[in-house]
Structure formats: C-alpha cells, structure tokens
C-alpha cells in the first residue's frame, strides 16, 4: 500500500450563510491523480482552494501525510511550500522576468541557494521547451507559454502534491495540448501526486486514477478513473458526461 498524502474528512464550507461544500471526504495516495469533475458552480475551485488554505472552512479536517493540518495562517504558509498550485488565470508576476518568477519563492521563501535553484530552473525550462525565454517578461509570452512557466514555477518549490484548477480553460485550443502533455508527464515520469480540475474529458480519462464527481457542493461519485467514464453510477454523472460530448 502506498503512502497517504492527503485525506479530507467531513469538510463543510460556507460563503456567509450559504453552504458551498457539504461533507466532503476523500483520500489521495502518493503518486495518484485525482480529477475533480462537475458542472460549473459545483464547488470544484472552492474545494481545491480549501486544500491549500486559500479558502477557510467551517468544519471537518485535512490531513497532510497523516498529520492533521492546523488551519492557522502561519501553518498554511509553511505547508503551501509543499503544495504546488496552478490556476486558470496563468498570471506570472508581470514585474519579474521568467527566471525571476521561478527563483522568487525557492530563494526568498525557502532560502535555497540561488545558483542551485537557477540550475534547476533552467533544466525545468528546457523540459517544457522554453529555455530561450529565460530572460523574457511575461507580457512577451503567449498564454500557453505562461501557463507552462507557472507550472515550472510551482515545481521549483519541490512540492509533494500539485493542484491544478482548470489550467487550460483560458487557453487557445492550440496551446492546450502542450500544457496537458506536461501535466501527463508529471504523472507518468515523476509520479507526482496531483489533484486536477478540468473540463478536458479525454485528458481526465487518460490521467485519472480516481474521479470525484461534484454537484452542488456534494460528492455524488468517488470512483476509480476508468470506471467513472465507462459506468457512471448516477444519472447526474451520465448526464454530465453526455453534456460534455463524451
């Protein structure tokens, strides 16, 4: 049995009086990929943001590598160094070059030696095919390039888990494949533990070890990946897959 990386127990989240997430529980093991699927507004972003403390929650618990997470800001700030996150908006810091964007957190937050991080940054940039943009500013890059660099920036922190929230949703179609390929490689080559929110069903089917299907803030299905796409248990999930042309 592989090691448990993340466990969520009975998590409830409110925005004001309105409950956005209801009794969410799941477990994720090392090297596994969990995809969060569900219609717009079902709470996917809210859930993934709860997992690195960008949103607080009312009750329930999160366990990181078996340790219960103390949900104070100091502790989250420490923990976020081990939890990489990439967003839909692909905004790098516009006032820094590509290299500076990547070095910033490892050097200033983690206090690692700059030379070492730089070598690693160049290696990662090469891996995503963008080494020649090392001294460019974000505004000189396309959305897909920025998103690949945002992934590199998160990886340079040596995270133990990566969270992806619709990282291709705002990209032009021809950019999508390159970004998804990088995420796929992370799973297949590096065996990175990941939680992925996506509307790309082919990609989800290919990469998911486990699928959480959310609707109205509730988990309707928690199924092994292949199983979900072949034999969705609920009508809602069947309807969702149909609506996604799948």
């Amino acid at each position: 049995m592989t090691k448990e990386v993340l466990r969520v127990e009975h998590l409830n989240k409110f925005y004001g009086d309105w409950q956005a997430l209801h009794d969410i529980s799941f477990t994720l093991h090392q090297g596994e990929v969990l995809t969060l699927l569900g219609p717009s507004g079902s709470g996917k972003s809210t859930l993934i943001r709860c997992l690195n403390g960008l949103e607080d929650f009312k009750s329930g618990a999160i366990y990181f590598k078996g340790q219960k997470v103390e949900t104070n800001s100091k502790n989250w700030q420490e923990l976020r160094q081990k939890i990489g996150m990439v967003f839909q908006s692909y905004d790098l810091f516009p006032n820094f070059t590509v290299l500076e964007n990547i070095l910033l957190a490892p050097v200033k937050v983690q206090k690692r030696p700059e030379e070492e991080v730089k070598t690693e940054a160049l290696r990662l940039l090469k891996r995503v095919g963008l080494e020649k943009y090392v001294n460019s500013y974000p505004r000189e890059l396309s959305g897909g390039q920025k998103q690949r660099i945002a992934i590199v920036r998160a990886l340079a922190m040596h995270p133990e888990i990566m969270l992806f929230d619709e990282v291709t949703a705002s990209l032009d179609p021809e950019m999508v494949r390159g970004v998804l390929q990088i995420v796929t490689d992370l799973s297949q080559v590096d065996h990175m533990t990941m939680i992925i929110v996506t509307h790309e069903m082919n990609f989800a089917r290919q990469i998911a070890d486990q699928v959480l299907f959310l609707e109205n803030g509730k988990i309707l299905e928690n199924t092994p990946g292949e199983e979900f796409f072949k034999h969705p248990k609920t009508n809602r999930a069947r309807g969702f897959l149909t609506s996604m042309d799948f």
Partner: peptide, 29 residues
C-alpha cells in the same frame, strides 16, 4: 489583482514577502 495575491500565497509567501514582491511593485505602478 487578487489572482496575483493568490499566486504569491500559493508559493508560500508570508505577508511581508507578499507585500514586498507582489503588492508594492504592482501597486506603485
């Protein structure tokens, strides 16, 4: 932009680092 602040937080920055590297340079501009 709040998404810039999310980015900084997600990279583990504390409030001071967030201010120094993200909020102030962009805010001054």
């Amino acid at each position: 932009n709040s998404s810039q602040i999310d980015d900084g937080k997600a990279l583990g920055m504390n409030n001071l680092q967030l201010a120094r590297y993200v909020v102030f340079p962009q805010g001054f501009a």
